[in-house]
Amino acid sequence: MEHQAAAAARPARGHGRAARPKRTSSGKGQRAAEVFILSAPAIVIFVFFVIVPIILGAYYGFYRWKGFGQPSVTGTFVGFQNYRTALSDPAFQQAILHTFEIVIGSLVIQGPLAILFALLLNQKFKLRGLIRTLIFVPYVISEVIVGTGWSLILQKDGALNEILKHMGINGPDWIADPHTAMWTLLLIISWKYIGFAVILMLAGMQSIPEELYEAAEVDGAGFWQMQWHITLPLLMPTVRIWVFMSMIGSLQLFDLVYIIWGRYLSSTAGVSTMATYMVREGRNAGNYGYGSAVALIIFVISLVLALVYQRFVLNRDLKSDEIERKRLERLEKKRARQAKRALATEVK
């Protein structure tokens, strides 16, 4: 408990240290106090509930521990055994594979569709506002409700198969059949989250200057030519951000699978994810040390993917970041000041 509090207090103290040299005049002291008052609550709560658990999880991951008392007292230190067990467990390997299928499937299905839908809704026509609201509906509904509704619709003798029967098609067992379960999941995910992608793309399209299209039209470009040569390239920053968000979301996917397939069916139907494995083997089995180790593996996989993506794809967007620019400007000013001072002392 004690070291958690210390960890939470650390950034605030660090900030105090950074601000101290500035307290030469009362105005600067007041400024530092303002910065402290405004930012400390957010930093403290963020560090305490987001950063500290991840650090604690790394520590718990070294123990075989049932979650009561301190792991060093009531648990057994097992070193990297939990990590070895997890990584060599075929069920977890399957879960990692499924998770990556979901990451890629979501991107491939939702990306092109979202851009097309956004193009459609970017046309000027009546009722556009209403339609934009309606396509956002699935995104607003909770995963539990989406899961409950879809699992009723997709039952073997549910509504969808009934409609298919009228069309002369014998529908599969959408949920339990391992051959179709992953496709079913991807369908539900796409249905649920594409509204967000569409809104994001729409926002991106609306920031493209109208003049570009007018100029292209003068040059005799057709509708699709314009979309291909103007909209798509200028939409890429938005697409890159969406890919990032979708990827992170897919890596953490838990609710939908857990609700529709339940604790045990998910692995037999071939849709278990890293997160459902973690909850099943960690909390539900009461193995908190093991669960924490699995969580850390998920964390590392997500972090590595995020960093690689940022380094190679997002970087050019982020480089133009204003904060970074201002930081460099200040650094330059400081250097100039230092050089001046150095010159002054030399003259003396």
Binding site: I54, A295, I298
Partner: peptide, 17 residues
């Protein structure tokens, strides 16, 4: 950086906390 880590990765220790 926090944007990259939804609740899932921290949920077990978070619950204990």
């Amino acid at each position: 950086a926090g944007l990259m880590f939804p609740m899932t990765v921290g949920i077990t220790p978070l619950y204990l906390l």
